[in-house]
Simulated scan of single mutants.
Amino acid sequence: MKIILQSIVTCPNCGHQKEETMPTDACDFFYECENCEEIVKPKPGDCCVYCSYGTIKCPPIQAGTNCC
């Protein structure tokens, strides 16, 4: 299975979108929106901001394993 590392993150506060490269060896629990400077955290039950606000789930979830 090919793991996709690019995800477009949408800020839940202002709607700003930015393509980001996801790390393969760590989870991003916090994400700062470059537009409104809001610090975004994952939704309850999600492991990281990519799983909550990205167009693509994080690499461990794509691979079918537990996230960090």
Rank of each mutant, 00 (worst) to 15 (best):
H16D: 10
V9P: 00
E20A: 05
F30G: 10
C67I: 07
C51T: 01
P59A: 02
L5E: 07
V49F: 09
P44L: 14
C14H: 08
N35M: 13
M22D: 05
K2D: 08
D46G: 04
G54M: 01
N66M: 14
C51N: 04
T24S: 10
Q17L: 02
V49C: 08
E37L: 14
Q17I: 06
H16P: 02
E32I: 11
V9G: 00
Y50K: 03
C68Y: 11
K18D: 11
P12E: 12
C27F: 14
C48N: 03
P42K: 06
Y31W: 12
V9A: 00
K2F: 03
K43D: 09
C33Q: 01
N13F: 14
I39V: 13
C67Y: 07
E34N: 05
N66P: 01
C48Y: 00
E34F: 05
I8V: 11
D46C: 06
C67G: 09
K57P: 00
C14L: 03
Y50P: 02
C67W: 05
V9M: 09
P60V: 06
K43N: 13
E20P: 02
T65N: 12
N66G: 12
P59R: 00
D46Y: 07
A26K: 14
T21M: 13
L5I: 12
P44H: 15
V49G: 01
F29K: 13
I61S: 07
T10A: 09
C36T: 11
V40A: 02
F29N: 10
N35S: 12
P59M: 01
C47G: 14
L5Q: 04
C36S: 03
V9E: 00
I8F: 01
E32G: 03
A26F: 08
S7K: 03
F30N: 13
T55F: 02
P42D: 05
L5S: 02
C11P: 03
D25F: 15
C11K: 00
V49N: 01
A26R: 14
